[in-house]
C-alpha cells in the first residue's frame, strides 16, 4: 500500500501496478462493496447526526419553531458551565450517572460472579433455578419499569413495602421508594440489576467453566480450601472476563435512559434526584424544545464517554488484558 508516492491515482489507472490479493483475484471492488452498506448506514445514522449535533450546538434553535436558527457561537457551552442553574442541573445529572456507574459496576460485577458460582454447581433442579434467573433478561425496559413502579408503590399496598412490613413485623412499612430523594436512585439501580445482571452472569459462567480443572486439582493437593481456591484459582482465571463485564456495565450506566424516563415521570417523584444526562437531553430537546442546548449537552456527553472509553482501554491494555 505504500508503493505509490505520486498523486493518488484514479482507481481505474491503478490495477496494473498492484499485486492482486491472493484471496480475491479479479475482484478489486469486492472489499469496499462488501463494507459499503454498513459503512453508509453508520455514516448516515451515527456520524452525520453527531456532526449535526456539533453544528446545532452553536445555534439558538427551538424545535418546531417558526423562528430561524441564530448562530451564537459557544454560548450554549458557556451557559452549561457558568449559569448556576444549568450547570447545577447538568452537574447533578452527570453526578447521577457517575453514582449509578460507581455503584452498579462493582455491585453488578460481584453479583454476576456470585450468581455464576451459585449456579455453576451440578445440583438436581439447577435448570429450573437458572431459568428463573435468566427470565428478566428478555423483559423490555418499558415493561420492567411498569412492573417495578407497582412494586415500589408508596403506602402499604406496594409490594416491597408489604414484604418489608411482613418481615419486620410492621416496623418497616410505607416508604416512598421512588419519591424520596434518598432512595430514588437506589430503587432504579435495583431494578436495573434485576433486569440485566443475568446477562453478565452468563458471561462469567462461561468463563468459570473454561478454567482448567487441573488447576483446582493442583490447588486441592496443596490443601487449599474452597475460599483459597476461589481467590487463587478462579478469580485470576476469569480476570479478563471480569474486566470485560465491568466495561460493558460502565457503558450501560452512561446510556441509562428508559427506566429513568419512565419512572421519574410517575407519581410524586422528584426528577432532580434521578435525572441522567440522557433524560436531561431529551427533556431539554423535546419538552423545552431547546434543541441547541440539548445538542451542546450531547457533545459534552460524547466527549466524556470517549474519555472514559480511552481510559478504560488504556487500563485494560496496561494490565495485559483484552
Amino acid at each position: 500500500m505504500t508503493t505509490q508516492t505520486q498523486k493518488i491515482p484514479s482507481p481505474a489507472a491503478a490495477p496494473a501496478k498492484r499485486q492482486s490479493s491472493a484471496i480475491l483475484t479479479g475482484h478489486r471492488f469486492a472489499g469496499p462493496l462488501f463494507a459499503s452498506p454498513a459503512l453508509i448506514g453508520l455514516a448516515i445514522f451515527l456520524v452525520a447526526p453527531f456532526v449535526l449535533a456539533v453544528v446545532l450546538s452553536f445555534y439558538r434553535v427551538q424545535l418546531n419553531s417558526p423562528r430561524p436558527a441564530r448562530f451564537i457561537g459557544f454560548e450554549q457551552y458557556t451557559r452549561l458551565f457558568t449559569d448556576p442553574d444549568l450547570s447545577a442541573a447538568f452537574g447533578q445529572a452527570l453526578l447521577n450517572n457517575f453514582t449509578f456507574a460507581l455503584i452498579v459496576v462493582p455491585v453488578q460485577t460481584v453479583l454476576a460472579l456470585g450468581l455464576a458460582v451459585l449456579v455453576n454447581r451440578k445440583l438436581r433442579g439447577m435448570v429450573v433455578f437458572r431459568t428463573f434467573i435468566f427470565m428478566p433478561l428478555v423483559f423490555p425496559l418499558a415493561l420492567t419499569a411498569v412492573i417495578w413502579r407497582l412494586i415500589y408503590s408508596r403506602g402499604d399496598e406496594g409490594l416491597l413495602n408489604a414484604i418489608l412490613g411482613l418481615f419486620s413485623g410492621g416496623a418497616l412499612s410505607s416508604h416512598d421508594w421512588l419519591g424520596s430523594p434518598s432512595t430514588a436512585l437506589g430503587s432504579i439501580i435495583v431494578m436495573s440489576i434485576w433486569q440485566s445482571v443475568s446477562f453478565q452472569m452468563i458471561i462469567v459462567l462461561a468463563a468459570l467453566q473454561s478454567v482448567p480443572t487441573e488447576l483446582y486439582e493442583a490447588a486441592s493437593l496443596d490443601r487449599a480450601n474452597k475460599w483459597q481456591q476461589f481467590i487463587n484459582v478462579t478469580v485470576p482465571g476469569i480476570r479478563n472476563t471480569l474486566i470485560f463485564v465491568a466495561l460493558i456495565t460502565t457503558i450501560f450506566s452512561f446510556r441509562l435512559f428508559d427506566q429513568v424516563y419512565l419512572l421519574s415521570r410517575s407519581g410524586s417523584v422528584d426528577r432532580g434526584s434521578t435525572e441522567t444526562v440522557m433524560t436531561q437531553i431529551i427533556n431539554t430537546g423535546f419538552d423545552n424544545n431547546n434543541v441547541g442546548q440539548a445538542a451542546a449537552m450531547t457533545v459534552i456527553f460524547m466527549l466524556i464517554i470517549t474519555v472514559i472509553a480511552i481510559i478504560q482501554r488504556a487500563a485494560v491494555r496496561q494490565r495485559g488484558g483484552v
Binding site: A30, L39, P49, A53
Partner: peptide, 26 residues
C-alpha cells in the same frame, strides 16, 4: 479482504462502537 483504506475505516468503526444511540437520538 485486502483493499485500500480498510485499516482506517475499520479503526473508525471501532471508535463508533462507543457512541451510544441515545447520544445521537436528538
Amino acid at each position: 479482504m485486502k483493499w485500500r483504506g480498510k485499516k482506517v475505516l475499520f479503526l473508525l468503526v471501532i471508535i463508533l462502537t462507543i457512541i451510544p444511540f441515545e447520544a445521537v437520538a436528538l
